[in-house]
């Protein structure tokens, strides 16, 4: 469902991710653990392109989210004449890709028409067949942040309805433009979003807070609202970026309970967390990140009880759960 291939992320000279690939299946709960600075949050943020990968591809439900930039895709680089000639000269695969990327060798202006029409056609074909608008892709991915990031200038209910209403109205407008017959009106969309927001608020027991501003809520309440705000878009996968790290200890429970509820209902989730007990309980699969790569991967039992990687052993011996 969510496929990430060969993700590299550099912040200047700081190489945070060094080639991460994994696939999240429908209904799967994947947790990512690791020390601070191991790249786990960056990996999560690359999944919905809040961080643009320096290299690599993100596929959501068979559609390519990352731009079709030849330098992002190994296959495209490998299809180029430049790559072929470099390899023919005796250069290794990785070395040739590095060189092409570093020296910007695929640009026509640098190489005359070296890559030719065939290559341009290949690029266009990949784009047409696979590309999805980044906003459309993100609508299928809910994201929960460490710092909640509720909209400060909107009430709790407006926080939840904003995206469904704006996007619903945009779709309506687009459908009209295409000349399709639409049965819904803008008012219907608003009423629907409103009803759904109230139902979601009821689910977390905060319906009486619908019309207050987020600044009056406690941390735990804010995070729960942030979670249902993401749910209001009916995403296919939820991404949690250390959802309890900024909370006071007594509020961690209520947020974890809501997430547990959610994953039990079959929501595909990727969770970056420091709550090892929680990770052990809810995960189908656990990834241990170290130094920008996946150092250990397996079921919770495998990773927590029989870790193979020495770094992972070391990490788990230092954390309590």
């Amino acid at each position: 469902m969510l496929d990430i291939k060969n993700i590299y992320k550099n912040f200047g000279d700081n190489h945070v991710l060094k080639g991460v690939s994994t696939t999240v299946e429908k209904g799967e709960v994947l947790t990512i653990i690791g020390v601070s600075g191991s790249g786990k949050s960056t990996l999560l943020r690359c999944m919905n392109l809040l961080e643009e990968p320096t290299f690599g591809e993100v596929w959501m439900e068979g559609k390519l989210m990352t731009p079709v930039d030849p330098y992002l895709h190994f296959d495209v680089i490998r299809a180029s004449n430049t790559y072929k000639s470099l390899v023919a000269e005796g250069m290794g695969d990785e070395e040739a890709i590095e060189k092409i990327k570093a020296e910007d060798l695929l640009k026509e202006k640098h190489h005359g028409r070296a890559e030719g029409a065939e290559y341009a056609a290949l690029m266009k074909k990949i784009y047409d067949e696979n590309h999805i608008d980044i906003n459309l892709g993100r609508q299928k991915m809910g994201m929960v942040f460490q710092n909640f990031n509720l909209f400060n200038n909107k009430t709790v209910k407006e926080n939840i309805t904003l995206a469904p209403v704006k996007i619903g109205k945009q779709r309506l407008k687009d459908a009209k433009k295409r000349g399709e017959t639409v049965t819904k009106t803008a008012a219907d969309i608003e009423a629907e979003a409103d009803k759904k927001a109230m139902a979601l608020l009821e689910r977390i027991g905060l319906q009486e807070k619908a019309n207050v501003y987020p600044s009056t809520l406690s941390g735990g309440q804010r995070q729960r609202v942030a979670i249902i705000r993401a749910l209001a878009m009916e995403p296919d996968v939820m991404l949690f970026d250390e959802p309890t790290s900024a909370l006071d200890p007594e509020m961690v429970g209520e947020v974890l309970d809501l997430i547990k509820d959610l994953v039990k209902s079959g929501m595909t989730s990727v969770i970056v967390t420091h709550e090892m007990g929680f990770a052990k309980e809810v995960s189908d699969r656990v990834i241990f990140m170290h130094d920008g790569v996946i150092a250990e991967e397996g079921t919770p039992d495998e990773v927590f009880n029989h870790p193979q990687n020495p770094r992972c052993k070391d990490f788990l011996s230092k954390v309590l759960y």
């Binding site: 892709g137 990031n149 909209f151 904003l162 995206a163």
Partner: peptide
Amino acid sequence: VDPGQMEAARSLGLTQRTAMLSIILPQ
């Protein structure tokens, strides 16, 4: 304005323009 506000808006699938107009500019 906290960059998290823009990130949250974009993560919901709102366009840069909508996020700017309804979230960032009012703040």
